[in-house]
């Protein structure tokens, strides 16, 4: 069997064992489904949400918030990272402030954003932005600083202006770092969107989960989490395809 085949077999095996034990535990009376629900009920709930169409508007809102948060946080983070990497003095001055801002727990910000931006998508986008921004910022900063001095000197000797240096060396060099953080940034953007919805919204996966919790509907909570996980895994696969394409020179 190929190594990929073996990996897939193990993956499926683990899922079967865990879900089987869970389902069997409930059937045998060892697990109380009130607290933990059961795989069959969760699957049925997910299927029902899909069939009835109730899922789509919520899923769409969450995706919209996460993707906008990723885009805005990404652009701001990359721009700030470049600016500070090219201005070492400013970077040194601002360093403690950046560390302080990054230390603020984002959950604490959520109610403030609700107050400032209202119940609709912008408060969630703001939360996602605060999460994505710092990851992108630090990676860009590191990527630019990490650019090989010999490459920089060579391109300068070949006649590059400051702008051309950014375009031909610093950007592509930082891109490796930026792309490698894109997966985690995407996950964080989803977290930002869902946490925001969870604390106050009228739509979204976080809202669905919060509604289910309000009625002690554990099956609904697990169904919401399942959908969230699937969405993150699928979008991450898309991101890693983009990453491989852009970094094809590495192989």
């Amino acid at each position: 069997m190929s190594s990929q085949g073996r990996v897939t077999a193990w993956r499926v095996g683990i899922a079967v064992v865990v879900l089987g034990a869970w389902e069997g535990g409930v059937a045998a009376g060892a697990i109380d489904p009130f607290f933990l629900s059961r795989p069959s009920a969760i699957t049925a709930r997910v299927a029902a949400w899909i069939m009835s169409g109730t899922l789509w508007p919520h899923l769409w809102v969450t995706l919209e918030e996460a993707l906008l948060g990723l885009a805005i946080g990404g652009v701001l983070g990359i721009a700030a990272g470049f600016a500070l990497a090219r201005a070492p003095l400013a970077a040194r001055v601002l360093d403690p402030y950046i560390a302080m801002l990054n230390a603020v727990p984002r959950v604490v910000l959520a109610p403030l954003f609700l107050l400032w931006f209202g119940l609709d998508i912008w408060s969630k986008i703001a939360l996602a932005v605060t999460l994505v921004f710092f990851v992108m910022f630090f990676n860009t900063l590191q990527g630019v600083r990490d650019a090989d001095r010999a490459l920089v000197n060579n391109v300068r000797m070949l006649g590059a202006s400051e702008r051309q240096l950014v375009r031909h060396v610093l950007m592509p060099s930082a891109l490796t770092w930026i792309l490698s953080s894109l997966q985690s940034s995407l996950g964080l953007a989803m977290v930002g969107a869902v946490v925001g919805e969870y604390l106050g919204a009228t739509h979204g996966l976080g809202y669905m989960i919060a509604q289910a919790e309000g009625t002690f509907d554990t099956t609904g909570v697990f169904a919401g989490m399942t959908i969230l996980s699937i969405v993150v895994v699928v979008t991450s696969a898309g991101v890693s395809r983009v990453e491989r394409r852009l970094l094809r020179w590495k192989h």
Binding site: D148, A150, L151, N153, N154, M157, L158, P172, W249, K250
Partner: peptide
């Protein structure tokens, strides 16, 4: 022009 001791080709080009 300057041919450096290190590798200086841009790996992404």
């Amino acid at each position: 022009t300057y041919m450096f001791q290190q590798e200086t080709l841009l790996p992404w080009k």
